[in-house]
Nucleic acid binder design. Structure first.
Length: 641
RNA sequence: GCCAGGGUAGCUCAGUCGGCAGAGCGGGUGAUUUGUAAUCACCAGGUCAGGGGUUCGAAUCCCCUCCCUGGCUCCA
């Protein structure tokens, strides 16, 4: 019998008979770990115990601890969920049921049935009951024809549709207990590994993500090998909720919404306004330093402007509809983007190649009609302010401009402590070039410039084909919120379309008119969203320069209020934002209140301080710093700005 | 927009079977004059999201609308 050589992690190269499965490898070479090994990463792929090892395979067994182990675990949990559903609700039709980042889901067609609290309890109970049977997973290979017949007999249209899309002649099925599923795997050895499950959410999901197709019920869940880990997971979720910007935003007086104003239209409260102003001032100064020119443009424009830009035709469903002047002779719209206004500024005078790049910046408020189900605190709203700028440049300047924008975004992120972000380059779908405007050569040049710029700036970015805007490729910066959802913040987009539509030109050194290239860019993306994410990242503990209130002055008793007022005035004169708590509460309570408001510094004032002309300084989070004169305190604060 | 779950005092939430709308925090007033994470007492505060229906009687059951939450789709 022929042998194959494989490399086992922690053991080295071994020679085994051809046809040896991963199960046999684990039993022979990892006997003491066989109860915790769930599968293995073979070369780059995750495989389960049915895998027959091949010559040259590098095999790394994985347990629950590894991400790949969790993937196997949760994928099998999805099958367990399906088994429970089929047993509780016979006749359920199944879509797909993958493992996801945190758990798994299964899309099912429940007919007229809905899933509520009661059903969720039942499903969880049934899953655990089935798991306890330790049903082994079995893998079977069927011909595609056999598979089609099986699902025709069972009456599962979704599975038939999946089969139609498979090109191979044979397909694999996994079976455990009473449930059989068309599935590529990988799966656990048996269901007994699953000791704790939680149905986390029930939601509608269109079949194959297509709104024209029927909507299935997506049942989300998560599972663990021990009950303790489930508890810990739920505890962490609770913790995350405390960082939710909607909760903190209210608590800290940053923003609110009013039904009368309208959904998705945030109202900035005084504390939020301070925060926003600080951020805008910071960006203003930084951009002026970098050669941007600030402009102001109105929030509305004649409909015609957006017909020129093409937004009215292309972006119609996201726009509030035209309204008219009192005599109804003119139609205006609420702008969904700032670029057309900036194009008009470009056009306001003839431009020479010597004027380029021209960088026009504005904190431009825009209004977009987002679908109601999509609104989410400050992270998705209908009225928001873009820290926008449009760079008009020559084609040969695109690379340098792009690099300098990346530098700006990285600078801004660093200043605000965003270290955990990812970058994504969106390029054309190479198989569907007619979807995009602009000629091939320009696109290729732009895509190359973006990738080159990212490389030269040492910015790792994943490239997504087919994600580009119709007018040009882009680079986006994404960060996660407290609940782990990814949001796009900063964006840099190359645009060949608008300069053409607005007939923008510049006089070249050759004394001929040329077409400039536009770069749309926004380091924050939207100020609303940025503040939302910033709240979650900092838990509302803003750095001193951003904190709406920087120093809380706390009196020990009424007797020291006069002195406290003098201290407050000195701090205000030095430019600090203060709050004097002269209520007749005890100092403990005052500290607690200041902590809850996340105020960076507290100045406690009692008998000693009033006599000596000092303050007893304390910083956010239990730290007493010491007693110092007011002047020393002001110096101390200034050092931290 | 679609699916599901929700909406009770400023906030967080309780309210059993359809039978007098509650608590804590916050707010006001008074007492207290306090030394580093909650002093005590009293008081005010409600169209139970809005509208309609069923019923002797609705926060509670049914229908419609609005809003919120989580997904889907979309997107800064």
């Amino acid at each position: 019998m022929s042998e194959v050589k494989v490399f086992l992690e922690g053991i080295g190269e071994v020679s085994v008979p051809k046809g040896t499965t991963l199960r046999e490898i684990v039993e022979k070479y990892y006997p003491d770990r066989k109860d915790e090994i769930l599968g293995a990463v073979v070369n780059k792929d995750i495989k389960d115990f049915f895998y027959e090892v091949q010559e040259g395979d590098r095999i790394r067994p994985v347990t629950w601890q590894a991400p790949e182990g969790k993937h196997i675990f949760w994928h099998s949990s999805a099958h367990l969920l399906a088994e429970a559903l089929e047993s509780l609700y016979p006749g359920v039709k199944f879509g797909t049921g993958p493992a996801i980042e945190n758990g798994f889901y299964y899309d099912v067609d429940l007919g007229d049935r809905t899933i509520g609290e009661k059903e969720i309890k039942q499903i969880e109970k049934k899953m655990l009951e089935l798991a306890r049977r330790k049903s082994p997973f079995k893998k079977r290979i069927l011909s595609k024809q056999e598979a089609i017949e099986y699902y025709k007999k069972k009456g599962d249209p979704y599975k038939l549709e999946i089969l139609e899309g498979i090109e191979d002649d044979v397909v694999s099925f996994y079976e455990h207990g009473n449930f059989v599923d068309l599935c590529r795997g990988p799966h656990l050895p048996h269901t007994g590994f699953i000791k704790a499950v939680k149905i986390t959410n029930v939601a509608g999901a269109y079949w194959r993500g297509d709104p024209s197709k029927p909507q299935l019920t997506r049942i989300y869940g998560i599972s663990f090998p021990t009950k303790e880990e489930l508890k810990e997971y739920l505890r962490r979720l609770e913790e995350a909720k405390k960082r939710d910007h909607r909760v903190l935003g209210k608590q800290l007086g940053i923003f609110t919404f009013s039904q009368n104003v309208g959904s998705g239209l945030p109202l900035w409260l005084p504390n939020g306004a301070v925060l926003r102003k600080q951020l805008e001032d910071f960006l203003y100064r930084e951009q002026v330093k970098r050669g941007y020119k600030f402009v102001y443009t109105p929030h509305i424009a004649r409909k015609h402007l957006y017909e020129i830009s093409g937004h009215f035709q292309k972006y119609h469903h996201h726009m509030f509809q035209p309204f008219t002047s009192p005599d109804e002779t003119e139609e205006y719209i609420l702008r969904p983007m700032n670029c057309p206004h900036h194009c008009e500024i470009y056009k306001s005078e003839p431009r020479s190649y010597r004027d380029l790049p021209l960088r026009l910046a504005e904190f431009g408020t825009v209004y977009r009609y987002e679908q109601s189900g999509e609104l989410s605190g400050l992270l998705r709203v209908r009225g928001f302010t873009v820290d926008d700028a449009h760079i008009f440049c020559r084609p040969d300047q695109v690379l340098d401009e792009f690099k300098s924008v990346i530098d700006l975004v990285l600078f801004v992120f660093k200043k605000l402590g965003f270290e955990d972000f990812s970058a994504q380059i969106s390029v054309r779908d190479p198989n569907n070039k007619e979807k995009y405007i602009g000629d091939d050569e320009l696109w290729e040049q732009a895509e190359k410039s973006i990738q080159q710029a990212a490389e030269e700036m040492k910015l790792p970015a994943r490239v997504m084909e087919g994600e580009a805007a119709f007018y040009g490729p882009k680079l986006d910066f994404m960060v996660r919120d407290a609940l782990g959802r990814e949001w796009q913040l900063g964006t840099i987009q190359v645009d060949y379309n608008l300069p053409q539509r607005f007939d923008l030109t510049y006089m070249g050194p050759d004394n001929k008119l040329h077409r400039p290239v536009m770069i749309h860019r926004a380091p924050f993306g939207s100020i609303e969203r940025f503040v939302g994410v910033l709240i979650e990242h900092t838990e509302g503990k803003f750095p001193l320069w951003l904190a709406p209130i920087q120093v809380a002055i706390l009196t020990i008793s009424e007797k020291f209020v006069d002195y406290a007022k003098q201290v407050e005035q000195k701090l205000k004169d030095a430019g600090f934002r203060t709050l004097l708590d002269d209520s007749d509460e005890k100092i403990n309570k005052k500290i607690l209140k200041a902590e809850k408001q996340r105020i960076p510094y507290m100045a406690v004032i009692g008998q000693r301080e009033a006599e000596e002309g000092t303050v007893a300084v304390r910083s956010r989070g239990r730290k007493q710093i010491g007693t110092m004169t007011v002047e020393e305190f002001i110096e101390f604060l200034k050092e931290q700005l």
